[in-house]
């Protein structure tokens, strides 16, 4: 049974995960040695009907802060199939790439 997932929820989930990763590097700044500068996620999805938005770019250099990014994601109403098993059954031309780029 195919199960489509809200792209908004997926985006928020990935965004929070990236923020968590960045925060790990920034904790106790004196001892942190790794600073995450940029994260780009490219995820194959099969959108229900409409084409996907362009790259969702987030970060100070993109003029979009974390809270604003969440608001932007809230505008996405589409749902999509994202699990590998489901995408495997879909013809390649119907697969889109969800691209999320964060710059810190």
């Amino acid at each position: 049974m195919s199960q489509s997932i809200s792209l908004q929820s997926l985006g928020v989930h990935l965004l929070r995960d990236c923020e968590k990763l960045r925060a790990c590097g920034s904790l106790n700044s004196r001892t942190a040695t790794i600073q995450v500068k940029e994260i780009t996620i490219t995820l194959p999805v099969v959108a229900a009907d409409k084409p996907l938005p362009q790259t969702i770019a987030i970060g100070k250099q993109e003029g979009l802060l974390f809270a604003e990014a969440l608001q932007q994601l809230a505008q996405i109403k589409d749902r999509a199939l994202i699990s590998a098993a489901e995408i495997d059954k879909i013809p390649a031309e119907s697969i889109s790439q969800l691209k999320l780029r964060l710059r810190f």
Partner: peptide
């Protein structure tokens, strides 16, 4: 066993802060 078309990628650029 995952088909190439279902593979996702994540690229992370990091800088190492020296102290």
């Amino acid at each position: 066993n995952v088909n190439e078309k279902a593979i996702a990628r994540v690229k992370v650029t990091v800088e190492i802060q020296n102290y």
